[in-house]
């Protein structure tokens, strides 16, 4: 279980708190939707859970142990903007190889055809690039996936395609997914058939019980 306990975060000792006392957890194979008003610190929370930031207070545990600081992190974060999460000087094939090379059939399912491999990120559309960014983390070493507005920049068709593949992957490998979004119909849809835990505008106390 991926668990964030009593998480507090701020960028500097004199700056205001961005995240105040949040507790939440994701079980393997579970899809949790997180929808909250701006100022809740959703994005920061995602970064804390994936180990991009260290909480000022509280801790993030994976199966009762702290997140590993070395090696492939079992908790992976997918950003909203794929342009920033790939090295603009690398070709797609190299970008895909940086983590654990993705399995062939995920590439096919995501519509990443061989012609894309030799191109540079700026030669791809946003939708294609986001699919590449997602393919990078669809491997057996990913145990939890945090999707921060993963499809907010994409058209409905690409959104449906990406979520179909990601949910299939999560189901097959028993991966826990936390989806952060403003899109209520989307969260309702993707949490269907899984343990639904839609945290809409909820207060921290009710999260603690989860």
């Amino acid at each position: 279980m991926l668990k964030g306990e009593g998480l507090w975060f701020r960028y500097g000792a004199r700056l205001p708190w961005v995240v105040r006392d949040r507790t939440l957890s994701v079980l393997p194979g579970e899809v949790v939707g997180l929808m909250a008003p701006s100022g809740y610190g959703k994005t920061t929370l995602g970064k804390l859970l994936a180990g991009y930031l260290m909480p000022t207070r509280g801790r993030v545990t994976l199966n009762k142990q702290l997140l590993p600081s070395r090696g492939y992190c079992p908790v992976q974060l997918v950003f909203q903007n794929p342009e920033l999460s790939v090295n603009p000087r690398w070709r797609i094939a190299r970008i895909l190889r940086e983590g654990h090379p993705p399995q062939r059939h995920y590439l096919d399912a995501l519509g990443i055809y061989p012609g894309l491999m030799t191109r540079y990120p700026h030669e791809l559309s946003g939708g294609e690039l986001q699919r590449v960014a997602i393919a990078r983390v669809l491997n057996r070493n990913t145990r939890y996936l945090i999707a921060d507005e993963m499809t907010a920049m994409l058209d409905a068709n690409t959104q449906a395609l990406i979520w179909k593949v990601v949910l299939e992957f999560a189901c097959q490998h028993h991966v826990g997914v936390m989806a952060i979004s403003h899109d209520r119909p989307l969260l309702t849809r993707i949490c269907q058939g899984h343990t639904i835990k839609l945290l809409i505008d909820s207060i921290p106390a009710s999260l603690a019980k989860a």
Binding site: Q159, A160, L161, P185, T188, R189, I190
Partner: peptide, 11 residues
């Protein structure tokens, strides 16, 4: 392909 409709992508 909207989530509130079928949520089915075109390949």
């Amino acid at each position: 392909s909207l989530p509130q409709n079928d949520f089915v992508p075109v390949p």
